[in-house]
């Protein structure tokens, strides 16, 4: 197996630019005057949702509610991976009914997290529409899931890792790809 190789996909400036573009994209795809809600998926999706909410507030001049979703209990692979520590609470500040809910996550890969998030959101209410915004789409889907808003697309192999760093947790904003497995 060749030594793993780390590539910088987005540096701090590119990260900021990308988020801004995503915010505009979200706004364009949300018909006015339907109210928005951003729902970040634990862990880093929550921070991204906070950033996007701030950007959207600047664009529109109105507060954008945001929440957090922990999908651990909705995973379909408990049997395989065993129970994992729950990383954080689920917290939705507003009634979802009639709103456009945007699921925000850092990386879109197999689509299973999004599937779980859709299930969980359905238990909380009936949004008018659900959108999906991700910072990185790395391909490799196992379910028919596509994002409506994508920050960056990067083709990867199953052995690769896409690592997202955010200032709030990691001290810097960056996205890096670790080329690992050597598999095509």
């Amino acid at each position: 197996m060749p030594p793993s190789e780390r590539q910088l996909l987005l540096d701090e400036r590119a990260f900021a630019r990308t988020l801004h573009r995503m915010a505009l994209d979200i706004l364009r795809q949300t018909p006015d005057p339907v109210p928005l809600v951003l729902v970040g998926i634990q862990r880093r999706g929550v921070e991204l949702a906070v950033r996007l909410a701030a950007l959207l507030a600047k664009e529109t001049g109105a507060e954008v509610p945001r929440g957090a979703l922990d999908i651990t209990l909705y995973r379909d692979d408990l049997e395989v991976v065993g129970p994992r520590p729950l990383v954080g609470p689920t917290h939705l500040p507003v009634d979802l009914d009639g709103r456009v809910a945007w699921i925000v996550d850092d990386v879109l890969f197999t689509g299973r997290t999004v599937r779980a998030a859709l299930d969980e959101l359905a238990d909380f209410g009936r949004p008018a529409r659900i959108g999906l915004a991700v910072l990185v789409d790395r391909g490799g889907r196992e379910l028919p899931v596509q994002a409506d808003v994508v920050g960056e697309r990067v083709p990867t192999s199953p052995g690769d890792k896409v690592e997202v760093f955010v200032k709030e947790l990691d001290g810097r904003d960056a996205v890096e790809v670790v080329r690992g497995g050597g598999r095509p």
Partner: peptide, 21 residues
């Protein structure tokens, strides 16, 4: 109940690569 439920440790490692990151 959650912590005791299911889980086959020998598959856990393999599954990590296939999880959503």
């Amino acid at each position: 109940l959650y912590l005791l439920a299911g889980g086959k440790p020998e598959l856990a490692e393999a599954a990590k690569g296939a999880s959503d990151r």
